[in-house]
Write a protein that binds this DNA or RNA. Structure first.
Length: 817
RNA sequence: GCGGGCAUGGCGGAAUUGGCAGACGCACUAGACUUAGGAUCUAGCGCCUCGUGCGUGGGGGUUCAAGUCCCUCUGCCCGCACCA
């Protein structure tokens, strides 16, 4: 039976004391030393805290604790992203109201988070589903609306037939609903959008400055998808109509043999000839009915129909047939393209299928293979006066030429679409606008906020917003004319709630405004943000956008909300698969915490994995960590035992060696933990403990005072990783409460300089031996010592030494022949 | 299809960024203590044909020196996916 020196009782003892002594209270007076450490807040799901929560919050807390000991005034709040579909779906299944289940879950999770022993300052808690919070979410929406950054339009939107709501582009994964996996369909609805595209350029440009994982920056860059090209105008033959196409390859303009409109393009009805109308209508219906999956399928054959109309080539005056096809997206560029089958794979495929002409206008410039479709840059052919020009030049020159006639302009397009924020669901923040027959859309006056979410609502989903069925909610008076009016029945996407919560934390009790500008400019940006990589394209992009928008409206002074970002990895089940109930491989933190205590659990999470990688759970690992703490416990007991006995005061060889390890550990832990390399930090601490054991075992007459000093440093270094345990050990040593008021040890460079170092000796790059040299020896001296070594002599004997390479402190390489 | 990342002992994972591969831990082996050991302590532990041998997914290259840089192939993971 393992003797358990440390147990959940110890956890509770210190949690209580920390709370009583307000050890982790953020002191606003020290704002000049503030460090805003933020973990992504959690969704109050029914279950208890899972390993993922622990893996996110535990190590982050350790990092924050180290920072506290380093003298920072750490601000580490916690809260709940409490609106959202799961609570509502749960309500539909069980009849328990989302508000009731959510608040209950929050209570449970709060208790568990406290049991984790993190430094969270609960005075700054934020819960997004409470009116005190969503009042300001609505306020944010209204500011955007007044600035023209929120608008309504009818658009084909992603519709999940199972959730009965629309989804943002980011919430559609492989044509399926991110949440429930149902195939997403299209629906035409009038919806609220936030104009994130206005900030596309800045969102893209500022990415470089962010201390974020490269991968995440790349994902955002791709998501924004900047594309430089031109818009070129085509006239409709025989009609007083024209349209513009977007192209990045204006150099291929002479190769255009037809043009294509997206089926949803409003021009289609105006130009379709009577003879073709029947086919066009059929095709439009067909395109609409397709699910996202069908539409996205790359193996799918191209489809489309001729409209009967023709466009006029802007340079040659040639007549070009106008087709409609669903390979052209209504939502990108202008919703129409010029087709150049010779130099675009999609157009080539389409032209081949429908027997449309294919005309080459680019040849390869270096004589390499240029069979059609040839999509590389090259040299122009059959392009009037542009013939012979390089693609790179021609794509500019042709646009410049057309520009003189007002028929083209340079244009930058983005893949990023505006953010659709209306949701036809109940459990969210009501959209604070009123629809008046006379006055149209009227924003709710700020003094009337919040627009409260009514409690008694029938929320069974049927495609209509549940709020629509609440008479008392819907009917109101127009703030403008005083006449009868209706509220907006939709609620805001929960990503709106989470896109500004980090601004509310430092001023969460403010009832006058969402936050005080002067104060928030001192507290932000967030210095370290830690959370899952799954938010790379959504939350993290939205939050950046909202920050920039509020900055331009004068509420903030900084450009980016999260200076530095870390993603934790994923802890897998013991079988190496993602944890899931159906696989039966779920590791429940509670089972371990009740046996080993919170520190052992979080310590294992830090020691057993590379933090940003994660990996499969292993039960043996947690036992190893428990053993490690027992080893420290015994060391503490040992010190108490020998403390009063006779020792020595000198610092001799053994003390020097231990002192080296001590300072090496301080340095390594400081540097590694800074980078969230907790596994190596703890490895170094284990080495220090091993060194202390070795000293205790090997040295007969000890310098006990010195040994105790080293142990004290070891406990300080250990404190962030095992807060309850070290607090207990600190007390056992008779030191003053609290270890977290101790300052972080500093390493002494001079202790890291050894008198002699052992270096490797290579012959022709192969390791053949080792020699000891004084650490301050010159290269010549090292060469001499090396060549005198008996073993090395054997290798060198009778051979010609061509060269000797000395790398100080590392190795010597002798090149012989 | 395009873009990015990863591949190191039986296992989790380290390697001052081109300089002694395998830190630390698990598992395993041996010994000590012991009534007992699934506790603790000490030691060993990449592989083999045991050599001046081989070795960081396979093959090639640059270099005095390659896990690290370059080319190529294979496998896994992630992002985007008709964005003109």
């Amino acid at each position: 039976m393992i003797v358990m020196p440390y147990s959940p009782d110890i956890d509770r003892k210190w949690q209580k004391k920390w709370e009583e002594t307000k050890l982790y209270k953020f002191n606003p007076e020290n704002v000049d030393k503030k460090l805003y450490v933020l973990e992504m807040f959690s969704y109050p799901s029914g279950a208890k805290l899972h390993v993922g929560h622990w893996y996110n919050y535990g190590p982050s807390d350790s990092w924050a604790r180290m920072k506290k000991m380093q003298g920072y005034e750490v601000f580490q709040p916690m809260g709940f992203d409490a609106f959202g579909l799961p609570a509502e779906n749960y309500a539909i299944k069980t009849g328990i109201h989302p508000q009731d289940s959510t608040m209950k879950n929050i209570e449970t999770m709060e208790r568990q988070l406290r049991e984790m022993g993190a430094m969270f300052d609960w005075d700054y808690e934020v819960i997004t589903c409470l009116p005190e919070y969503y009042k300001w979410t609505q306020w944010v929406f209204l500011q955007l609306y007044k600035a023209g950054l929120a608008y309504r339009k009818e658009a084909p939107v992603n519709w999940c037939p199972s959730c009965n709501t629309v989804l943002a582009n980011e919430q559609v994964q492989d044509g399926r609903c991110e949440r429930c996996g149902t195939e997403v369909t299209k629906k035409n609805l009038t919806q609220w959008f936030l104009k994130i595209t206005d900030y596309a350029e800045e969102l893209l440009n500022n990415i470089d400055e962010l201390d974020w994982p490269e991968k995440t920056k790349k994902i955002q860059t791709n998501w924004i998808g900047r594309s430089e090209g031109a818009e070129i105008e085509f006239k409709v033959y025989g009609k007083d109509l024209s349209f513009r196409v977007f192209t990045t390859r204006a150099d291929t303009l002479y190769g255009v043999t037809y043009v294509v409109l997206a089926p949803e393009n409003e021009l289609v009805d105006k130009i379709t000839t009577d003879g073709q109308r029947k086919y066009v209508e059929e095709y439009k219906e067909f395109a609409k009915k397709q699910s996202e999956i069908e539409r996205l399928s790359t193996t799918k054959e191209k489809t489309g129909v001729f409209t009967g109309a023709y466009a006029v080539h802007p340079l040659t005056g040639e007549r070009l047939p106008i087709w409609i096809a669903d390979y052209v997206l209504a939502t990108y560029g202008t919703g129409c393209v010029m087709a150049v089958p010779a130099h675009d794979e999609r157009d080539y495929e389409f032209a081949s299928k429908f027997n449309l002409p294919i005309k080459r206008v680019v040849k390869s410039s270096n004589g390499e293979d240029d069979v059609l479709p040839y999509t590389e840059y090259g040299v122009l052919v059959d392009s009037a006066e542009f013939t012979g020009m390089k693609s790179e030049d021609a794509r500019i020159k042709i646009v410049e030429r057309l520009k003189e006639e007002g028929k083209a302009e340079i244009k930058v397009n983005y893949r990023l679409r505006d953010w659709l924020v209306s949701r036809q669901r109940y459990w969210g923040a009501p959209i604070p606008v009123i629809h008046c027959e006379k006055c149209g859309i009227v924003p709710v006056p700020e003094e009337d906020l919040p627009v409260r979410l009514p409690y008694n609502v029938e929320f069974a989903p049927d495609g209509e917003s549940p709020l629509k069925k609440s008479e008392e909610f819907m009917h109101t008076t127009c703030p403008n004319c005083g006449g009868p009016a209706l509220r907006d029945p939709d609620t805001l996407d929960t990503f709106v709630c989470s896109s500004w919560y980090y601004l509310r934390y430092p001023d969460n009790k403010n009832s006058e405004k969402p936050f005080d500008t002067e104060w928030i400019n001192k507290m932000l940006p967030v210095d370290k943000y830690i959370g899952g990589a799954e938010h790379a394209a959504m939350h993290l992009l939205y939050a950046r956008f909202i920050t920039k928008a509020l900055r331009d409206l004068g509420y903030l002074k900084f450009d980016e909300p999260f200076k530095s970002l870390i993603h934790q990895g994923t802890i897998l089940g013991p079988d190496g698969n993602k944890m899931s109930k159906s696989k039966g491989n779920v590791v429940s933190p509670d089972d371990y915490i009740s046996v080993y205590g919170s520190d052992v659990f979080r310590l294992y999470l830090m020691f057993g994995f590379a933090y940003t990688e994660g990996g499969p759970w292993n039960d043996d690992g947690i036992k190893a960590v428990s053993r490690f703490l027992s080893r420290i416990e015994r060391l503490i007991e040992r010190i108490s035992e020998i403390r009063t006995s006779q020792g020595k005061d000198e610092i001799d060889r053994d003390e020097k060696e231990l002192n080296f390890t001590r300072h090496y550990t301080i340095k390594s832990v400081t540097e590694d933990a800074e980078k969230f390399q907790f596994n190596t930090s703890i490895s170094r601490l284990m080495e220090l403990v091993n060194a202390l054991y070795k000293y205790d075992n090997d040295v007969k007459v000890k310098n006990i005072k010195f040994m105790e000093d080293v142990v004290a440093d070891m406990l300080r270094l250990m404190a962030p990783f095992a807060p309850h345990f070290t607090e207990e050990m600190w007390e056992k040593m008779g030191y003053e409460y609290s270890i977290f008021n101790q300052s972080w040890p500093k390493w002494d460079e001079s202790a890291l300089v050894k008198d002699v170092v052992e270096i490797g000796v290579q012959i022709n790059g192969k390791l053949r031996g080792r020699v000891e040299v004084p650490s301050n020896a010159e290269d010549k001296e090292i060469e001499r010592i090396t060549l005198e070594d008996e073993k090395i002599k054997e290798y060198v004997e009778g051979k010609e030494i061509k060269k000797i390479i000395v790398i100080r402190g590392r190795l010597v390489n002798i090149v012989v022949k």
